[in-house]
Amino acid sequence: MRSHQPVLSIQNLSVEYAARRGKVKAVRNVSFDVFSGETVAVIGESGCGKTTLALALVRLLARAAKITSGKVLFHGGDYGAPIDVLRLSQRQLRAFRWRNCAMVFQSALNALNPVLRVSAQVQETARAHGEHDAKRIEERALWLFQQVRLDPKRVYNAYPHELSGGMRQRVLLALGLLLDPQVVILDEPTTALDVLTQRTIIEVLKRLRDEMGFALIFISHDLSMAAELAHRIVTMYAGSVVEIGQVNEVFYRPKHPYTLGLMRAVPNLSGRRAELISIQGSPPDLIDLPSGCPFAPRCAYAQAICHEQAPPLEMRDTDHASACHFWDRLPVLREQPAASSEELRS
């Protein structure tokens, strides 16, 4: 399921936006590895920097944005040595995008050109990224449409307006996988889709990533989606990573009060009706960040030190890091269901 060689290694990445009032520090010093075949969910609320992070990984940031530090090392493909995505020329970038790393955006409804048939968009995409064998691309596209549970012939020849939102989202997913990338980035893949359509996308994603072996980075504010799909969870707050760990670890034994707060704020559907609590206050101004821990003003565990010193992101347990001075005071949120710990051991 997960190899020991990271396919993507994000190191000290920072991104700023120029605004009239000053610099918006949207992504601050983010580091984590993504291993081949694994799914990493980046969770956090609007404005936490998760979409900016995703855009930076494929260098699709808006003009006002500037990458101020860091490296994004890609170890896959046939480059021999790892390459730093942030140092690629425009020409090299074209080859890297789609062949090595594809991104599927959240506004599926706007991402397709309304006046072109799906077939034309498939062929154009392939050509733009250096694949000229039209016949082979068509075969590949038809096979992928089948994989994402679409009627291949009909969809291939359709215009986007003939397809429903869920179908368009699946077309985009297939389009992303066209050149067999090693890394796929999904930004809120199922927002604005209905429950049953969302389920289809989840199932398709699970099957494809297991069969094709790509690493999946998905950006979501939906904790339930993350719980279902991810092997590891990265929690972002105010532009930086505050917690990273195995999915069960993060959900059952969170080591950062913000993650704990999110978990306590999401209603469940089956089982006991949990009493839920909101996190007090609102996220800080990214132009004028408070000193110390950015979560401290909202944190129930905060002490004097939290307002003075920003806690570093450090390992607190096996494969589980958090940026909190008082991580060891947090309660175990839920006991992991008993049967499953058996399963894990065997």
Binding site: A227, G271, S340
Partner: peptide, 15 residues
């Protein structure tokens, strides 16, 4: 169908 399709905020339960 709706209820069984919805993911839950608990990795073991939802899987």
């Amino acid at each position: 169908a709706l209820i069984t399709s919805l993911p839950e905020p608990d990795p073991e339960v939802t899987r």
